[in-house]
Structure formats: structure tokens, C-alpha cells
Design a binder for these strands. Sequence first.
DNA 1: GTGAAAGCGCTAACAC
DNA 2: GTGTTAGCGCTTTCAC
Lengths: 335, 335
Amino acid sequence: MTGSVAPTLEMVAARAGVSRSTVSRVVNNSPQVTPEVVAIVTSAIAELGYVPNRAARSLVSRRTQSIALVIPENTARFFADPYFAAVIQGAAMFLAETEYTLTLLIGSPDDSNKVLRYLQGGNVDGALVLSHHSDDGAYLRLARSLPVVFGGRPMDNEDNDSFYVDSDNVDAAAMATRHLIERGRTRIATIAGPQDMAAGIDRIEGWRTTVEAAGLTPGPVEVGDFTPPGGADAMRRLLERGGDFDAVFVASAQMASGALGVLREAGLSVPSDLGMTTVDNDYFAINAVPPLTAVEQPTTRQGAKIAEMLVDLIEGRTIERHATIPTSLVIRDSA
Amino acid sequence: MTGSVAPTLEMVAARAGVSRSTVSRVVNNSPQVTPEVVAIVTSAIAELGYVPNRAARSLVSRRTQSIALVIPENTARFFADPYFAAVIQGAAMFLAETEYTLTLLIGSPDDSNKVLRYLQGGNVDGALVLSHHSDDGAYLRLARSLPVVFGGRPMDNEDNDSFYVDSDNVDAAAMATRHLIERGRTRIATIAGPQDMAAGIDRIEGWRTTVEAAGLTPGPVEVGDFTPPGGADAMRRLLERGGDFDAVFVASAQMASGALGVLREAGLSVPSDLGMTTVDNDYFAINAVPPLTAVEQPTTRQGAKIAEMLVDLIEGRTIERHATIPTSLVIRDSA
DNA sequence: GTGAAAGCGCTAACAC
DNA sequence: GTGTTAGCGCTTTCAC
């Protein structure tokens, strides 16, 4: 199965008639090698199909050229969330153009420290942590001994000096809410996200401040878990409470899609009976009936940005601790 | 940023008062170490927080303990396809329980051989290839020198002796089509998938044979690209051709969701005017209006199975070359 | 500008 | 049952 053994640096050296050191210099683009020698070595490398052995290289250089992408265990079931897929894609595609490799790490239910030990053990040069819940403590601590960049602002009680990339969730919610107001809605409810996630907290804040800034009274609030069934339940509770609202800002398109199903059953139609806007311009928003007016967060770009920041951090370049990805409103039929 | 240096095996040995070999044996669960010594070494390891250095280990053992998950470049843009997310999740979660690590590789547009060179270079113990198009040649060749398991049957012209995990696409299409027939539909069209992908070919075959086995004449066929817009276009063409059909089997839920939009615009209602069934019980099927009767393919389990086969292959266990994941029909409102 | 030599942390014969 | 020894493939001083 193994076929022929991979060629080593030594074999290249023999073929090119130079020493191993010289080959190593050529491989690492050292400026101080004669052009002719470079040419000879380069063709020897090509003829042999030589690829440097990462293990040997990282053993001596103390750099692994690999980056971990960590998905905390409790988030693993949300993996089907288009958000994760897009962020991972963005990070992977960015790193494909670099010398770094992306290692996917999922918290093991059996041994919650396995991932941390792996990260601490010098097996990667840095880590991207997709943070969603409030259990970020361990990873915030990890950041003291390893370059770490978070996707989404991590939750903690101290001043936040960690590196992270986030979209402006407050502003996203504000845009979506403002649109409802501009469409003439005055009693605006919200289906909020979990209040132990930054996105959940920020979006409810954006909704509230926008409503109040317009001189309106905030409508009823129900909290969901960012999933379609969670959104459906929240909408059901909203209706049971009496339905004193003419619009609802739903904190995620997945919840909105669940909520729409409940409204359909209740015989309420969007946007005539109720205006609706949401965040996440994903297929839940696009394929909803009616298609939803939603705030677009370029998640693929966010993934790329996280990876880029981490590479900069690893390579010692100076960077801003926080980056914010701009959002924009995509207007469709729901409001 | 690096904090204190990671402890080495030698430091553990010194602390435990034994030789490095003994520590190594303990770390590798060698049976021939005295229980007392094991205890001493184990606690020294714990006190120091020792984690073996993978680079050093793999340099000598010639095993990297890492597995590549390859996504061909032309598929990368389909990453948001829930299929990929689910397969990756299944593989990652399975591997989290093993000693293997998952490295995500995306074909680089700049240098299409980069991934292959990496794989050839002995940097991984094996590769999972998510195959979707007909460009699998290079990876089929790779399989001669590296353990490779494909997700989805790879396309080739020779006898297929590669390892792969697939769902029974012929049967899936047959189930979906049979359901339409059982509901009394007699003129059954199809929106097929790309005919250079195994799933596209197999599903149209399942549709055709089922229709013919029932003594019916196959309805019109239009080919889409598995995306919602592709499904919408195909449905438009189907309607332009005259609409001589009372049901349509759509080869993917994404295409079905696009097709439904076209039907809505045309004033046709499902299921009263037209019955519809599809494959992929994902959120496109669940959140469609009306919710779609769809064949469920447990893609997460498929991901886990691919990973499991590859690990078996790497570790020299004898396994079947092909595994098939069972499918089942989920009946909803569209037929 | 190029080569020689040392050593990264670990495993695996081989002694004892 | 445990220690000694040699090297895995590479980078990196240090001579020349």
C-alpha cells in the first residue's frame, strides 16, 4: 500500500551533487545560494518529487505549520448551522493559500480536556475557536500560552483583551429593527437568541435601543435557541401572550423559519398581518415563504479574517485585537 | 506568548527516576512494565502535564496519526451544501474518539497539485475524499500509494476497486418515485442531477426503472446542478415543454426548493396540481412550503463510516471495499 | 557560498 | 522488566 518511500532531502542532495544543507537552503528560499546551484537543486527536487517531511521539519524548527479549528463540544450539534460551514470554508480557503494546514478539533464528550491537552502539547502553532456559548473560560486561559483568535466575541467577565473577529451584532439588529419602523410598524416584538451568547445579547440590545430611540415602547420578548423549533416555540408563546404587536424582529433566520410555520398554522400572513426581519442571509432566509428581509453577515469572509489574524499573530506581526465584519440589509418580502 | 516550554519525555524520566524508554513504554501502554513503575511514571506525567510531541513521535514511527479530508476545488463552493457539513461532522466526531486528527484540505486554485503533493509527501496516514464530480482520476491514482476512502462512489471507467461509502442512490430514487406512483400519479417527470456525478446518474436510473416497472411511460427529464437556482431553471424548462405530467421526482431537496418557487409563481400548487418527492431530508426539505416527502440519507453516519473504514484500512484490518448506508422515506405533505 | 556536525523528542532493537 | 544506543529527516550554527 505504501508504494515507494518518499524521497528525502539527502537523496535530493546526492542527485544534485551538493550537501544537505544546500538543499535545505534552497527549499527554504535562502537568498545566499548561487542561482546555478538553485537551478540544479530545484530540478533534482522536481525529478524526485521531493516533499519536505513536516514531522522532521517541525521537530527542529519548533513550528508545526498547522492551525487548529476548535468547535466546543456543546456546539458540535449545531454544526449543520450554515454559519459554521461558512466560517470553516472561509478559514480553510484562506489557509489553502498559505503554508498552514487546518486541523479540525471537536470537543470529545468522553474527555473534555483532550482537546486542550492537544493544543497545549505544542501540536499546533495556534488555534481558531468558534465560540458560541458561555463556556469559553478554558480557551480564554489557553490564549495565554498559545496564539488564539476567536470567531465571535467570547464571553467573559473581565475586560476583553482576547483576539476576535465578530460581526456587529448590535448594529445588525438595529438595521433589521429600523427597517420595520421605516415600514410603519410601531409595536415591535422580538424573538431573541440565548442570553449566554454574545450574539444573543447584542442582538436584543440592538433591537431595544432602536425601538426606544424611535420613541416606541418595546414589544414582548421571547427567547429561543437559534434553531427552527426554538423559533417556533418562541412564536407560539408570543401569540399566547396576546399578540399585541404588528412586527417581530427574529434574531436568526433559522428561528424565523420555525416562527413562520407557526404563523401559517395560526392563519397569520407575513407581511400583511405581521412584518418580520431577521439576521443571517442564509438559505433559511432566502428559501422562506415569504422570502425574508435579512441582515447579511459575510460569514465566509469572517472565517478568512479569523485565519488571517491568527497567521499574523503567529508570525509576530502587529494586529488589532478585534476586527468587525460589516453587515448589510437585504430587503425581500417579509417587511 | 509561548509561556513555559512543553515538558519532554526526558523530564518525566528524570522526575520519575527511570529511563526514557520506560516512560515511552508507559505512554504507549506497553504491557511489560511493573504496575508500581507505571504508577510512578503516570503521576510524574500528570504533575508535569506532559504531552507527547507528535512531530518527534511520527518522525520515528513513520505514522502521523493524522487523516486528511479532501474537498476538491470545484466542490469547495458547494461547501454550504448541508451534505458536506454533515459528512465532515460525522467524520470529525468519529475521529475525536480515536488517536487520529482530521486535517481539512481544499484544492488550491493557484496550484492544483499542492494537495496531492501534500498527501504524497507522507504528511498523513490516509485520506478521505469527498468526491462529487468526474475529476477523480488523480485521487484514484493516489489510492495506490496511500489509504484512501471516498465519500460517494468515485467516477471512473475501469472496474471500481476503490474503497468508498455511498448511500444507495438508485434505491433512494426508486423509493421516492414509487411513493408518487402509490399516490396515484401516472405521468412522472424528473429533475435530475448532473450526469457526471454518480448520484446524478444513479438517481435518474432509479426513477426510470421504477416508472417502467410500474408499466408507466417516463415523463420529461430536465437536468439541474443540485442547487436551488438550478432546480428552478429546470422546472421552468419542464413547464415550457408543455407540462404533460402530474408529478415530479426531484433529485435533490435543494433543487426541489428552487422548483417550488417556480411552481408558486406559475400558480400551481403542490400536492394538488403536482405531486413532488425528493432526496435529502435536510432543511431544504423540512422547511419547504409545503414540507417535502423526502428520502433520508443519514449523512452524519456516512461521515462516521468513511472515517471508520479509513482507520481500519490504515491499521491493516480487513474490510469490505464498499459500504452502503441505508435510506428511508420520510412522508410529508408534497405527495 | 557551501559543507560538516550537532541535535530537535521520540521509539525500537538489543543488551542486561 | 528496564536501560543503552542508534537514528528518524530536517535546520542551523560554525568553519572554511
